[in-house]
Design a protein around this nucleic acid. Structure first.
Lengths: 327, 327
DNA sequence: ATGAAAGCGCTAACAA
DNA sequence: TTGTTAGCGCTTTCAT
């Protein structure tokens, strides 16, 4: 059904080797032969079989992507950028949504190995540690410490947390609360919380922190927000380590009649386009998504192609603040 | 470096065939041999090479996904669901973000063919028509008419448009405007606009419709909203055919001091989780994303596996309304 | 300038 | 119960 290189060769009246030469532009081929081959390929709607090529070349030009979910705006944008850059550089993307489930991540990891990907980019958060050490091809992590030998790309989380905390203080907040993700996960994102603590302590304030459970969903976020409003009537500032959490805070605050930013100031984290379209007034720390994508892809491809590069095992990219009217 | 089946065979003291038999659980193998093989695989950290298997089996178990972008919440959620279902059913996903660019779509299409995907799911919108006819494996489209022989899965767009238009009328709107995507694209989504027109005409009202350009971005959306507020001071209802457009309308209305829903009622389309978290009060037509994903994947796999099924070439799934407080 | 043969890693006849 | 052989579609020596 699908024509192969031999079909093309037969139709063009040459050998498969010659067709291969035309395909790869290698060695000497007469113009005449070349044209005959092109014509035959055209006529048969021939496409070279990359499976066979990959087998021979021992390189698939596949890059595996393991992320929690494309449905979260941060990952959706990040994955868009990563995939586009890969495509431009001749790599194809195998997508894996781990949903932060350890078992799924492990299955995906095996699948990617079986499929001979040239490398993978991981951005999931799990409690346990999988065998990323034993993997026989390059791995780059985004916002996650996997092992000593696996490079990590992340934005400057400490700086982000610091900017947020200081902005709230400068804006006159007296009682600030920070909502963060699970701290037991080994991720540079914990630096946001560390920065918050440091800033508070430097100002002689005991930091108040609420930590979400591993794999929190919308309901637990809402419950936590209720709890916070309940336990701290005098709260006047919240730093959420994710825009969607910030969004929920705004909604809940609105529900109980707190005026933003007069009664309560809110600052989020990520600064994705989607959330900015939905909530253009949200003040947030903007992650440099495009640069994170560029850096991680170029690091990975450098590793794959064996480029000599000073192995910098932690790449930190500056964040910026997007001032809205919620602070 | 990477061990192959022969390395395993040698270590286990058997032939490659025997290892293959163990791997595939075929034929008779003595318990003893089986254990030796398992042990050897373990020792070498052996994973079967799926590239070689695919070449032999003439099936890759790859499904290609061509969508505009994972960064849009609707596609982000849709792609999450599609990928998860594929994974459960033993298929792997090659992700392509076409950005609605015809040339990119064409390149991706060729890439997928070269990589011998077993099938593809397409959800992009382009003006021109690519050669989906000539493709030699199954294709399923979501919200797009590609050719007579390619099945289309979509939600009940006409119903969605009807519900939205009628709700605005019932709520007392006198001057309703509809913002829609480019109508020249051949997509079932145009039914939303047709329904709007029909409902308005049935009520003796001349429908007012603003059409966004092909590949509209946020700036052109904002410009169009300004234009609408400018040209129609008496507007009291808007039906936007996308939640992100609705979100921008809310923001702009807020900016010029129009009270929602008293001065202006707004209804969106899609009902994604992300937008619902950001704007829980938004009234919107909710697309059954999960079912769309299930239907398109199962149709595609049925086609791939040659299941006899009554070829229903247009699958329409009911929508529902999510009532918020913007109407 | 072109072709024949071997091999990438795997599986399925066919033999034994 | 196990092994030998051929072949999936391609590319690359090595000949000619």
């Amino acid at each position: 059904m699908k024509p192969n290189i031999k079909d093309v060769a037969t139709l063009a009246g040459v050998s498969a080797t010659t067709v291969s030469r035309v395909l790869n532009n290698r060695g000497y081929i007469s113009e005449e032969t070349r044209n005959k081959v092109y014509q035959a390929m055209e006529e048969l709607h021939y496409f070279p079989n990359d499976v066979a090529r990959s087998l021979f070349r021992k390189s698939t030009k596949f890059i595996g992507l393991i992320f929690p979910t494309t449905s979260h705006p941060f990952f959706g944008e990040l994955i868009l950028n990563i995939e586009r850059i890969c495509s431009t550089r001749g790599y194809k993307v195998l997508l894996c949504n781990s949903l932060n489930d350890q078992e799924k991540e492990s299955e995906y990891l095996e699948m990617l190995q079986r499929n001979q990907v040239d490398g993978i980019i991981v951005g999931t958060h799990n409690q346990g540690t999988l065998n990323y050490e034993k993997i026989r091809f390059p791995v780059v992590a985004i916002d996650r410490y996997l092992s000593d030998s696996i490079p990590v790309v992340s934005s400057d989380n400490y700086q982000g947390g610091k900017i947020a905390a200081e902005l709230l203080l400068e804006s006159g907040c007296k009682k600030i609360i920070h909502i963060c993700g699970p701290q037991q996960l080994k991720t540079p994102a914990n630096q946001r919380t560390n920065a918050f603590k440091d800033v508070m302590k430097n100002h002689g304030i005991e930091p108040v922190i609420y930590e979400l459970p591993v794999n929190f969903q919308q309901p637990s976020t809402i419950r936590m927000i209720h709890k916070i409003f309940d336990e701290h009537q005098d709260i006047d500032g919240i730093f959420a380590s994710d825009d969607l959490i910030a969004a929920s805070i705004l909604a809940e605050a609105y529900g109980i009649g707190r005026k933003i930013p007069d009664d309560l100031k809110v600052i989020g984290y990520d600064g994705t386009e989607t959330v900015q379209i939905c909530l253009p007034h949200l003040t947030t720390i903007r992650q440099p998504i495009k640069q994170i994508a560029e850096k991680s892809v170029s690091m990975l491809i450098d590793l794959i192609e064996g480029k000599q590069f000073e192995r910098q095992y932690e790449e930190t990219i500056p964040v910026s603040i997007k001032k809205g009217t919620t602070v």
